[in-house]
């Protein structure tokens, strides 16, 4: 029982190291899609987020995020700033991102839709660059800690059992 619990905790910690780079990669992909649509098509955000809602695979938190954003902008007609925060808050329990990642994604809303094309593109490019740096660091962390935590969970469990005996 003790070994099972510590192994589970170890696996959960290990999973967050495993999933974070994947999630960051997806965020970068979606933000790049936004950049492309702004640069070449000048589509407004409600249309871009509607597209992304259709693109994301079901059962992922990205699907919940873009679905909420799509509904907020296209049906509830909410301001984009609050719609973005609301959608992020809705899904942040399900993700494996760090506090820095989360702050960056929330900060992205500050200038959404308020500036011209060049500035809006720079704004997204800066976010993509930072997320790419985060992804690099997350990959390093994954290499270092994923297996450690998974093994550590089991070992701590065994140690506790030995000590208790």
């Amino acid at each position: 029982m003790v070994i099972a619990v510590t192994s589970l905790i170890g696996n959960l910690l290990s999973k967050s190291y495993k999933e974070r780079p994947k999630e960051l990669k997806r965020w970068i992909f979606y933000l790049q899609h936004v950049v492309t649509q702004i640069r070449y098509m000048r589509l407004p955000f409600p249309v871009i987020f509607q597209q992304l809602n259709a693109m994301t695979e079901a059962n992922s938190y990205f699907s919940d995020f873009f679905n909420d954003l799509d509904l907020a902008l296209n049906q509830r007609k909410e301001p984009i700033h609050s719609a973005w925060h609301h959608a992020l808050t809705l899904v942040q329990r399900k993700w494996h991102l760090s506090r820095d990642d989360r702050e960056l994604l929330h900060a992205l809303s500050d200038l959404l839709g308020k500036i011209g094309q060049d500035e809006q593109l720079k704004h997204f490019q800066a976010a993509i660059e930072t997320l790419t740096a985060h992804e690099g660091a997350a990959m390093e962390d994954k290499k270092k800690y994923e297996r450690i935590f998974s093994t550590l969970g089991l070992l701590v469990g065994v140690l506790l059992v030995v000590l208790l005996m």
Binding site: P44, F45, V47, P79, I80, L112, G113, K114, Q117, E119
Partner: peptide, 13 residues
Amino acid sequence: LSGVTQSSMYAVE
């Protein structure tokens, strides 16, 4: 303005 620009100032620049 948010309604007019669809929250996307760049799209109506």
